[in-house]
């Protein structure tokens, strides 16, 4: 499954690049991140408490940065493991200088396994997308409180004509169903 997004940040590209490599900044921006430490020159180790639909788990995550091309782009390769399953992803992140500062673009591809896949990978797409959006949004606003998203939600724009309110209702219903199912 693929996730992508673009954010406009009023900060110099070099500053954004620094922040993307700063464990403290990253830790503050990852939802549920309890520990985040440098594991090697270009790798990090993280403990993340996450709730994805019905699955609550502590994910041990290893992130490594590859194809570093400072200050323009890199590839982020991550693997999260928990008893509830695993997630694996690759994100290409690029920084483009603009008049107003920096345009951050990301596109990520990831897959899940174990219980995460079993209890509804359709749900995981939404949850993971939200996590990614939350991260980049937090990251961008940490540098520039007025940072904003410039691309449109790709699904809403191209794939589906279903009103968003309806989607939200459906998502809530599904979450309730899962809770009912797991507890019942």
């Amino acid at each position: 499954m693929e996730i992508k997004g673009e954010y406009q940040i009023a900060a110099m590209r070099g500053v954004v690049w620094q922040a993307l490599n700063d464990p403290d900044v990253l830790k503050a921006c990852i939802p549920g991140c309890e520990e985040f430490e440098r594991a090697g020159e270009n790798s990090f180790r993280a403990k993340i408490k996450a709730t994805i639909g019905p699955v609550r788990a502590n994910f041990n995550t290893i992130l490594s940065l590859e194809d570093l091309n400072p200050p323009e782009s890199y590839r982020l390769v991550g693997e999260s493991k928990a008893a509830a399953g695993f997630g694996r992803g690759i994100a290409n992140i690029s920084l483009v200088e603009t008049e107003d500062g920096t345009l951050l673009r990301y596109d990520a591809d990831f897959k899940v396994g174990g219980k995460l896949a079993q209890v509804g990978s359709r749900l995981v797409v939404g949850a993971t997308k939200k996590t990614a959006d939350d991260f980049f949004s937090a990251f961008c606003t940490s540098l520039d409180p007025a940072a904003y998203r410039v691309d449109e939600e790709p699904e809403a724009a191209t794939k589906s004509a279903v009103p968003k309110t309806w989607l939200a209702v459906a998502a809530a219903a599904i979450v309730l169903l899962i809770w009912w199912f797991l507890l019942g």
Binding site: K111, V112, G113, K115, A117, Q118, G120, S121
Partner: peptide
């Protein structure tokens, strides 16, 4: 990849 997608009574 061998993950069971229809792994609950939702799917």
């Amino acid at each position: 990849s061998g993950q069971l997608l229809s792994g609950s009574l939702m799917d």
